[in-house]
């Protein structure tokens, strides 16, 4: 029972990281109908930004996470401004945007490898490593923080989408960007908001992944799990992304602890394939909607 509780907590904490990443994928997909494979890179830049803010500027952990989040948001918007927007203007097929994203995902880690080297760096926060004991279960502070910040960020995102004018613009654009433009919605503003928000979420995910494991140029690979979660949840569905992210984190951890860690990634991909075969729209995906 104790092992189970222990694993449950680990699962939720890694699951909340996946959920943040998955929401980023879902947000971009819902509006622009493509998956931004540049999230791995965004996440990695966010983690490195926080790492160097702590080491170089000696700022407290919480501030460094906020700055890492801001840095990732800016990086994400740069990808949109410099790469995706010119491509969208030329009306290229969505698949080319995804290929560009894959390009970012290969370029960015190699770029960082040249600059900071490939060494795996521990996240420089002693505070985060402290373990609290509740009953007979040990919880690391970073796990609690990951969960709390994920909930806070997702709530903030929800409020932004459902309570603000730009949020309404995003939801309208998610159905049809051309009709949205007819209503006076500037799709470029929507795009910036979407990329900043999803990038910030990826940045926070990067910080917590860095705390849980470590910071290194190739760490963006874990964003693939976010992509799996967003697909399993249903492409473009924010609720589905959160549910599937938590589920994936939980199931992976259970498999790693009760079966074997070597099966963990195998399981994630198997889950993706099985869901795609039997539920191509994902767990909470949009029905094929009537575009008349």
């Amino acid at each position: 029972m104790n092992t189970f509780l222990q694993q449950l907590i680990t699962g939720i904490s890694i699951g909340s990281i996946y959920a943040l990443l998955a929401v980023g994928y879902a947000l971009v997909f819902s509006v622009f109908n493509f998956s931004n494979f540049g999230f791995g890179a965004t996440m990695m830049f966010g983690a490195f930004a926080a790492y160097y803010v702590i080491l170089g500027l000696k700022l407290p952990l919480f501030v460094s996470i906020l700055l890492g989040m801001a840095a990732a948001g800016i990086v994400s918007m740069m990808f949109e401004l410099v790469i995706y927007r010119p491509m969208r203007k030329k009306n290229v097929m969505r698949i080319y945007l995804m290929i560009a994203g894959l390009g970012i995902n290969i370029f960015a880690p190699n770029f960082m490898l040249q600059i900071v080297g490939g060494a795996v760096k521990g996240f420089p926060s002693d505070w985060a490593r402290v373990t609290m004991t509740v009953g007979s279960v040990n919880i690391t502070r970073s796990d609690v923080l990951a969960l709390v910040m994920s909930i806070a960020l997702l709530t903030l995102l929800w409020a932004f989408l459902y309570k603000t004018r730009v949020g309404l613009g995003i939801r309208a654009s998610a159905f049809d960007t051309r009709t949205a433009a007819l209503m006076g919605i500037n799709v470029n503003v929507v795009a910036s908001a979407v990329f900043i928000f999803s990038g910030a979420a990826a940045g926070v995910a990067g910080c917590f992944y860095g705390m849980k494991y470590s910071v290194y140029p190739a760490m963006g690979a874990v964003a693939t799990k976010g992509f799996i979660a967003s697909t399993v949840g249903g492409l473009g569905s924010l609720g589905g992304a959160v549910v599937a992210g938590l589920l994936l984190g939980f199931l992976e951890t259970m498999i790693a602890s009760y079966i074997s860690t070597t099966y963990r990634d195998l399981f994630a991909y198997a889950l993706l394939v099985i869901v795609l075969i039997f539920l191509p729209g994902g767990l909470m995906g949009r029905q094929v909607h009537d575009k008349i």
């Binding site: 004018r165 309404l168 613009g169 939801r171 309208a172 998610a174 159905f175 049809d176 009709t179 949205a180 209503m183 006076g184 919605i185 949009r286 909607h289 009537d290």
Partner: peptide, 16 residues
């Protein structure tokens, strides 16, 4: 906008 409520559809109309 099939994914928005009637009310939200009208609000989008008043976006400007």
């Amino acid at each position: 906008f099939v994914n928005l409520t009637v009310y939200d559809n009208l609000l989008v109309g008043a976006y400007t």
